[in-house]
Amino acid sequence: MTKFEIRGLRADVLIGEDERQEILKGVDLTINSGETHAIMGPNGSGKSTLAYAIAGHPRYEITEGEVLVDGENILEMSVDERARAGVFLAMQYPVEVPGVSMSNFLRSSVTAVRGEAPKLRQFSKELQGAMKDLSIDPTFAARGVNEGFSGGEKKRHEILQLELLKPKVAILDETDSGLDVDALKVVSEGVNRAKAGGEMGVMLITHYTRILNYVKPDFVHVFANGRVAESGGPELADTLEAEGYERFVKAGA
């Protein structure tokens, strides 16, 4: 049982040397393990900022608030410590790291998160299986991290990492964007496999109810102007799809 709490979180995007802009204006959200929270909201409202700020992205600075994993403030940890504490971010735009092979990267990452190096044989079997489940061609293991991957291929690899790292909390930032119908299904199944143990909390950022048909949310939150503007059950997603965000954008402005 894990409790993931975001309390009064404020954060700036760092634009230039002395230029910054506040994007997160007091975010409160609690996710218990086993729960899936969908976050929906207009472009530019700060959803990715929230995800990146939690992960410790260098372009964002938190000015106020806490992010607690079972009572421990992860904001006091370095980026890699946060990941090892069980927080995982599937990025909206996964980063290409040329020259570092996917297989080396995954092995280093699994070793760091699990605290010991998996046996080589065992790991390569595990990796092959996980890749197969996500319909990823085995040749990707030899390529550079996300190097030249298509948008959809990058998203699949984010979920591959999710499945290998088995985090306590998974933040999925528009993992469904840019996926074709089949890929959406494959990726959703991956998320559901990771959820199956009931130990993982999920924060699922999306613009579409499409993915919510596969990955069922327990709660839906409207994110607008840098904060959670309204919360409800799964039915709220349908309302938003029908009516749009206008009401919330105005309310926050």
Binding site: D80, R82, M91, P94, V100, F105, S109, V145
Partner: peptide
């Protein structure tokens, strides 16, 4: 630093992330 951020966001400690990127270079 964004390369390093990505590797570190998967739990890889900073010095190892640096090593991986330079090795790759």
């Amino acid at each position: 630093d964004i390369h390093l951020f990505y590797l570190r966001s998967r739990g890889i400690p900073e010095d190892e992330a640096r090593r991986l990127v330079i090795r790759g270079y």
